[in-house]
Write a protein that binds this DNA or RNA. Structure first.
Length: 264
DNA sequence: ACGGGTTGTGAGTAAAGCAT
DNA sequence: ATGCTTTACTCACAACCCGT
């Protein structure tokens, strides 16, 4: 019904039952639909400007649109996303899906040569800087909830090397304290999920109690126990503010940056 | 089976919005 | 004012697919 993720607009040419739409929509995550939705807004604007039928363009319309994005300064990856979006929404052209049309492939290849993608991370940093910093903090009991959260997230990130998405999806029921470590199963679908297989994380105890994830995690769970009932959050990480609901991946990312930005 | 092309995904960033 | 969420956008990259 509401069209915040853009998926509805795609099949508006076909009047389809709600249940069908629901399944078509489930073929991509909301994140993907959001991105495609943005591309389609651009496409819509381009079409009305050039008097093109949004639903059934010619191949040269598509090629010009993609070239236009390139000329706006977009890199290969962005134009490629646009290609994917159009390919998903629009029917085949000249017997090819838009993504696989030979001219589209060629065009994208040209862009990848003119504006090749760079790798996301160019340098690494010394983890000890962060560890030394956290080591100087007061013991867990004396930390306020915010600092405790920041510390926990930092230690989780360092010990697991997982995306913030993964960290945000740690469910309390899946955290198992065993002998000398903690085992965490990630049961929700994540970027690298394979059907029917959940990710297992092992957190070993660390010699320095001040920097031990296991202890910090234990403490965090105790500390947040009291308001779990009201917030009824099944997830480990909760907001530092009432009603202490689930935190977004963005918040976790902010906490992480705060930990690394040692200006306290 | 591998390697290239294609598709689908989360991360990062900035800015606006919203509670407390 | 602060802490967090949402939105809009660009990007890198993982997974998938398929021809050889």
């Amino acid at each position: 019904n509401n069209d915040t993720d853009g998926s509805q607009t795609f099949w508006q040419g076909h009047p389809l039952p709600e249940a069908v739409l629901e399944l078509l929509k489930a073929s991509c995550t909301t994140k993907t639909w959001q991105q495609y939705g943005f591309v389609l807004t651009q496409w819509g604007m381009y079409c009305s400007e050039k008097n093109i039928d949004v639903q059934s363009p010619t191949i040269s319309n598509v090629l010009s649109f993609l070239t236009n994005l390139y000329e706006q300064g977009k890199g290969y990856v962005s134009v490629n996303t646009a290609r994917s979006a159009l390919s998903t929404v629009l029917g085949p052209l000249e017997g090819h899906s838009i993504g696989t049309h030979p001219l589209v492939s060629r065009l994208l290849k040209g862009i990848s040569h003119k504006r090749p993608p760079r790798c996301r991370y160019q340098f690494t940093w010394d983890v000890n800087v962060l560890l030394n910093f956290l080591d100087k903090w007061p013991v867990n009991d004396l930390l306020d909830l915010r600092k405790l959260s920041i510390k926990l997230v930092a230690l989780l990130a360092l010990t697991t090397g997982q995306r913030v998405q993964t960290i945000s999806l740690i469910r309390l029921v899946n955290v198992k304290f065993v002998m000398n470590c903690v085992q965490i199963a990630i049961t929700d679908r994540i970027k690298t999920s394979k059907p029917g297989k959940s990710l297992m994380l092992d957190l070993p105890k660390f010699s320095n109690p001040q920097l031990c994830v296991v202890l910090c995690l234990e403490h965090y769970i105790e500390r947040t126990f009291s308001f779990r009932k009201e917030s009824n959050s099944e997830f480990l990480l909760v907001s530092t503010r009432a009603p202490h609901g689930v935190v977004s991946t963005q918040t976790i990312s902010n906490w992480l940056k705060e930990a690394m930005n040692s200006e306290y």
